[in-house]
């Protein structure tokens, strides 16, 4: 599997760990950081949220496809929307559910608004950037997948994900690891097929296709709708772009979307520190040995004077 080029750059440069010769490469790598922009032919999903009716079929499809544990309540039980997790939050992705549907009561709208939540499969994923065992991979097909065999369970990816997606299997005592949506990579995407949720949706809420086509489609749709849709494709630019994108006729901030994530990928906030690392490794030894020589010169002079 091919990894992000930038990652290979940095890997090559830092794998040597303390090797001084690494600076040149690291600088190049950091210059590349945040400008990757995704694989050219990667796939994506466009979510037309106006169509979602909250039937939870996508959740059921995900459960079956991914072989997830039995849910707490049936997938056709709509009391699910009234459940509240920690701090009164709406249901979110968990170790048992890689996608969930949230219901929003929007002012001035007769029927409730539904929002499907799952991994957005960032072009430059924060989870991938933060993983110190290199468990994550952004595949050329667009999915952000992970290797559960090397996950240590540090949960930094949960910190780094701007969309609060990865979930830790808190219930496992023996082998707790991170779990999340992989866009059905192993069973479907790899073979060119759409994720199970996309296929199962009775309303055609989700369109599967090449990401760049979907971006164009989204804008056409917004344009042709004559002002029905909000003129924003969420995910086109957010945190460097995501493979899953959303259009809506309700302002995104009213339906739980984080509008403060910005357009810069997560790596761009971290790379300054990463660039500083080789500098410290290279400069400190000479600098502090120099300090040592300066600080102890008096003692040395005294010694030689005595001699």
């Amino acid at each position: 599997m091919k990894k992000l080029n930038r990652r290979n750059f940095i890997k090559g440069s830092l794998a040597g760990g303390l090797a001084a010769a690494a600076t040149g490469k690291a600088t190049k790598a950091d210059a590349a950081g945040g400008t990757f922009g995704g694989y050219p032919d990667s796939m994506g999903v466009l979510v037309d949220m106006t169509k979602c009716i909250g039937c939870r079929t996508c959740e059921a499809a995900c459960n079956v496809e991914q072989g997830l544990p039995e849910p707490d309540i049936p997938f056709d039980d709509y009391s699910f929307f009234d459940q509240h997790g920690h701090g009164g939050e709406k249901p979110r992705t968990t170790e048992k559910a890689y996608t969930v549907v949230n219901r929003y009561e929007v002012e001035g709208r007769e029927s409730p608004f539904f929002r499907k939540v799952q991994c957005n499969h960032c072009q430059e994923p924060g989870c991938l950037t933060s993983c110190f065992v290199n468990a994550y991979t952004k595949t050329p097909e667009g999915a952000v997948i992970y290797n559960p065999k090397v996950c240590v369970g540090c949960r930094t990816c949960m910190i780094a994900c701007p969309f609060y997606i990865p979930a830790y299997s808190f219930s496992s005592a023996i082998n707790p690891i991170i779990k999340k949506c992989i866009m059905c990579y192993d069973t479907r995407l790899k073979f060119g097929r759409p994720p199970a949720c996309v296929e199962a949706c009775p309303q055609g809420v989700m369109t599967f296709g090449k990401r760049k086509d979907l971006v164009a489609q989204a804008h056409t749709k917004i344009e042709e709708s004559g002002g029905k849709y909000i003129d924003h494709v969420y995910g086109e630019k957010e945190v460097g772009g995501t493979s899953w994108m959303y259009i809506s006729d309700v302002p995104f901030e009213e339906i739980g979307f984080n509008m403060h994530v910005g357009n810069a990928p997560i790596i761009s906030y971290v790379k300054d520190f990463l660039a500083m690392v080789p500098m410290v490794l290279i400069i400190w030894p000479a600098l502090f040995t120099g300090f040592h020589l300066l600080a102890t010169r008096k003692a040395k002079t005294d010694e030689s004077n005595k001699a």
Binding site: L14, C131, N134, V150, V152, C154, T156, N175
Partner: peptide, 24 residues
């Protein structure tokens, strides 16, 4: 974290050197 046998993973099994936690 539990699973102490995985504590050495970032060192020897699967390296993610571009991550801040790798440094830590």
């Amino acid at each position: 974290l539990g699973q102490p046998w995985r504590l050495v993973y970032p060192m020897f099994v699967s390296l993610g050197p571009a991550a801040v936690l790798f440094l830590v």
